[in-house]
Design a protein around this nucleic acid. Structure first.
Length: 401
DNA sequence: CCGTATGATTGCCG
DNA sequence: CGGCAATCATACGG
């Protein structure tokens, strides 16, 4: 519907005064904002003295006057005036001139940034939201995958499932908020876009509006809205990060390992007392058995070693207990030919006199304890502990693996 | 409520 | 990077 006026058929090359011919007053349009006195100018400089020219001048003057004052009128009035102008016989001519002027001035901005650079920041946010399972497909294992990946090996323990579900519910909460907000923005964007497009189309009846301009306008609107969306994404990302850090920061919500888990760990520890350094495979195995992660196993052994060595006496009871356990277990199911599984210090110590150990109240009996040969082997800890500070004489390194 | 137990973190070392 | 030592922060039991 726009540009139905063929610009007087002149190409851009021959643009000199095109369309001006026969319409002397037209040049007033070059400065539309000029007050209406312009009319007198036209009259003074009336080059073309044609009888028709005079009439035309007055005519145009009237039109200009109307245009200039149109903004001061009420909406209804303006609407009526607009319609009147639309029907005016000079309208096509005016329109064509507007088109020309626009063509000339609009050329400069024609090639002005047309492409969207695709904000890298936005891409980053999108990727992150996708990775967190906020943006991606419904309820995918995305979140769980991300979390378990972050907690090193993914042996999700049953007792952490509680917190995990808590995390999941919070994440889906964020997710739903994010989606509703996003949808709202999208809706508003399209609404606004169509509104503007309608407006422009409407305006294109009275002023030249190229489809390209509409496109540009739409692009601008989309850019604006997408910047808002970026903010939304950013805050969503922040929320997820906070949630995640809170969830993963196990220090905040530390849970003791299950009885069974510590059982398994202790069993391994005391049966490998001479060398309580489980290999990576052993750690994985233990982790699987205990329903904890490998790093948790490592932590446990680290803590255990240091604490055991720091105060062996304190652990005597426990050591005997587990030693006995493994010994019993070995004795019962002992089919293995020789030194099969680790029965490290435990077996040995127990072998002769379990009751002896158990009988000796390890309370604080510094000396009594280790000299029994309970002493692991002194190899794996660098030095003897200060607290009990007994003389670590020869020790017997045990079998174990 | 307090002291201890305990899992996790941090800094340092080789 | 794994281990050690110190330390933190919470859990747990009396």
């Amino acid at each position: 519907m726009l540009q139905q006026q063929p610009l007087t058929g002149n190409g851009p090359s021959n643009g000199r005064g095109l369309g001006m011919s026969g319409h002397p007053g037209m040049h007033a349009l070059n400065s539309v904002h000029q007050p209406s006195q312009r009319r007198s100018d036209g009259g003074d400089s009336g080059l073309e003295g044609t009888e028709n020219g005079h009439e035309t001048r007055r005519d145009i003057g009237d039109i200009l006057q109307q245009i200039m004052t149109i903004t001061d009128q009420s909406l209804d009035e303006a609407q009526a005036k607009k319609h009147a102008l639309n029907c005016h016989r000079m309208k096509p001519a005016l329109f064509s001139v507007l088109c020309e002027i626009k063509e000339k001035t609009g050329l400069s901005m024609r090639n002005a940034q047309e492409d969207e650079p695709q904000d890298p920041q936005l891409v980053r946010l999108d990727n992150m939201l996708l990775a967190e399972g906020v943006a991606g497909p419904e309820k995918g294992g995305g979140a769980a995958a991300a979390v378990s990946a972050a907690t090193s090996s993914g042996g999700m323990s049953p007792d952490s499932s509680l917190e995990h579900s808590d995390y999941k519910s919070k994440l889906s909460q964020i997710r739903s908020i994010y989606h509703t907000e996003l949808e709202k923005y999208e809706q508003a964007c399209t609404e606004f876009t169509t509104h503007v497009m309608n407006l422009l189309r409407e305006q294109s009846r009275t002023r030249p509006v190229t489809p390209r301009e509409i496109e540009r306008m739409v692009a601008i609107i989309h850019r604006k809205f997408s910047s808002i969306q970026t903010q939304l994404k950013q805050s969503t990302c922040e929320a997820v990060m906070i949630l995640r850090s809170r969830f993963l920061d196990a220090r905040r919500k530390r849970r003791n390992f299950s009885k069974q888990a510590t059982e398994v760990l202790n069993e391994y520890f005391y049966s490998h007392l001479s060398n309580p350094y489980p290999s990576e495979e052993a750690k994985e195995e233990l982790a699987k058995q205990c329903g904890i992660t490998v790093s948790q196993v490592s932590n446990w052994f680290g803590n255990k070693r240091i604490r055991y060595k720091k105060n062996i006496g304190k652990f005597q009871e426990e050591a005997n207990l587990y030693a006995m356990k493994t010994a019993l277990g070995a004795r019962q199911g002992d089919d293995s030919p020789h030194t099969p599984n680790s029965t490290g210090s435990g077996s040995f110590s127990l072998s002769g006199s379990a009751d002896l150990f158990l009988g000796v109240p390890p309370v604080n009996g510094e000396q009594s304890t280790y000299q029994m040969g309970m002493q692991p082997n002194g190899n794996w800890h660098g030095r003897n502990s200060p607290p009990s500070g007994a003389s670590p004489h020869s020790d017997h390194s045990e079998n174990s693996d």
